[in-house]
């Protein structure tokens, strides 16, 4: 499955593509919403590790604009619930991720992103 938690970690790894290779742009996506168990400890621990701007942008690309542009100072319940939804309940079942730099396309099929490269493309 690919959700925005994973998208926030993935980057283009084509040989020589080392700058502006993140975040991958989500295109032609089919999404499904599936409930996931809320875990506040995870979210609080994970927030400092997130690339926040990339998450906000990716959420917009899949049709969710509920997140604020910056991480709020007060992490209240309402915010954490919203973040939980964006990170863990929006599933990208089909679509593609395109490198903003080299335009390499990583397809997503049946919820699984294909990050394989041909041997000569690996850096």
């Amino acid at each position: 499955m690919v959700r925005l938690i994973t998208h926030n970690l993935l980057a283009c790894h084509v040989k020589g593509c080392t700058s502006n290779n993140f975040p991958l742009k989500l295109q032609d996506v089919q999404i499904a919403l599936r409930e996931a168990e809320f875990n506040e400890d995870f979210l609080r621990g994970f927030i400092p590790r997130l690339e926040w701007g990339a998450l906000v942008q990716a959420a917009r690309e899949v049709g969710d604009d509920s997140l604020p542009a910056e991480v709020p100072e007060m992490l209240d319940d309402e915010f954490l619930k919203q973040l939980h939804h964006v990170l863990l309940e929006i599933h990208i079942d089909e679509g593609s991720m395109v490198c903003p730099n080299c335009k390499h396309v990583y397809p997503i099929s049946s919820g699984i992103p294909n990050m394989l490269l041909a041997e000569h493309e690996i850096g």
């Binding site: 499955m1 994973t6 790894h13």
Partner: peptide, 17 residues
Amino acid sequence: AVREVVWGDVLGNGWRI
């Protein structure tokens, strides 16, 4: 439960360093 999985090679580098 639903897990996060990626199709890739262990010699790849498909994530933020």
